Amino acid sequence: MGFKLLSKLLVYLTASIMAIASPLAFSVDSSGEYPTVSEIPVGEVRLYQIADGVWSHIATQSFDGAVYPSNGLIVRDGDELLLIDTAWGAKNTAALLAEIEKQIGLPVTRAVSTHFHDDRVGGVDVLRAAGVATYASPSTRRLAEVEGNEIPTHSLEGLSSSGDAVRFGPVELFYPGAAHSTDNLIVYVPSASVLYGGCAIYELSRTSAGNVADADLAEWPTSIERIQQHYPEAQFVIPGHGLPGGLDLLKHTTNVVKAHTNRSVVE
């Protein structure tokens, strides 16, 4: 069995187990497998329904001669939608809004960016022009300005110390501490036991640490421990890039980060 097929099978099995364990909360999309990078042309966006009122959005972007996937989250909030992270750029984010209108038909009224990198804030200006209120932590807003990236308009308070959590509509926002970046936030959907790890969490097929220019490698494993301790009931975990899975993604990420750190020390 090929690795790609095995990865998709694991996603399907995880979703099936969740649907059985929580039949009222989960209505997993039966329309197909989780979209992969090879299936999404740059400039297009796919939506994948995880649970009743919960979707991931998947886009792709060219970077350094390669094409990478990027995940975000959409959560229903009454007759409105909360968006977590842009679709990595203005063109993708405009396509995301169009796809949401086509498939869901509810307005996106608020959006949260989970850290300051372009795959999370690139497209904020498109959201703002569409009347979406954009939010991020003060740290993310400051770092985005320093980096020359787009800056969300509103500040999220109460997320300055490791372990801080605040309720934001249908989700809980959690600051686990520094990891992929010093400002990275985690998003949890309690009604569906869905954990969105953003770039602080890796997919299972990833074996290298990737972009760690703004990471705190020493603190990252401790931050992941905080996530595990705060959300032990999480059933569906979405990484910032690639295929979702279960809580095993947290341990896998820790292993990859520690291996990278150990290699760096040896070198």
Rank of each mutant, 00 (worst) to 15 (best):
2 G>C: 14
3 F>M: 05
3 F>C: 10
5 L>P: 02
6 L>Y: 13
15 A>V: 07
16 S>V: 05
18 M>G: 06
19 A>W: 14
20 I>C: 12
20 I>G: 08
26 F>S: 08
28 V>Q: 07
29 D>I: 11
31 S>Q: 13
33 E>H: 15
36 T>L: 05
47 L>D: 00
47 L>N: 02
52 D>C: 03
52 D>R: 08
56 S>I: 03
61 Q>R: 07
65 G>H: 03
66 A>S: 07
69 P>E: 05
70 S>I: 15
72 G>V: 00
72 G>Q: 02
73 L>H: 00
76 R>C: 12
89 G>V: 05
90 A>R: 10
90 A>I: 06
91 K>W: 12
96 L>V: 12
97 L>F: 03
102 K>D: 12
104 I>K: 08
108 V>M: 13
112 V>K: 01
113 S>I: 15
115 H>T: 00
119 D>V: 01
119 D>N: 01
124 V>C: 08
125 D>H: 15
128 R>G: 08
128 R>N: 14
130 A>N: 15
134 T>G: 04
137 S>N: 15
138 P>L: 11
140 T>W: 01
140 T>N: 02
144 A>F: 12
151 I>S: 10
152 P>G: 12
156 L>F: 14
169 G>Y: 06
173 L>W: 01
177 G>N: 00
179 A>C: 03
179 A>H: 00
180 H>E: 00
180 H>S: 00
183 D>E: 10
185 L>S: 03
186 I>N: 12
191 S>L: 10
195 L>M: 15
197 G>N: 07
200 A>Q: 04
202 Y>M: 02
202 Y>I: 08
204 L>F: 08
205 S>Q: 09
211 N>S: 07
211 N>A: 08
221 P>V: 11
221 P>Y: 06
224 I>L: 10
224 I>T: 10
224 I>H: 02
226 R>S: 12
228 Q>I: 02
230 H>V: 07
234 A>M: 11
236 F>A: 10
240 G>C: 01
240 G>Q: 01
248 D>H: 08
249 L>N: 15
249 L>Q: 15
250 L>R: 02
250 L>G: 09
251 K>T: 04
251 K>D: 14
251 K>C: 03
253 T>C: 02
258 K>S: 13
259 A>I: 07
260 H>L: 04
261 T>K: 08
264 S>W: 04
264 S>Y: 02
266 V>E: 13
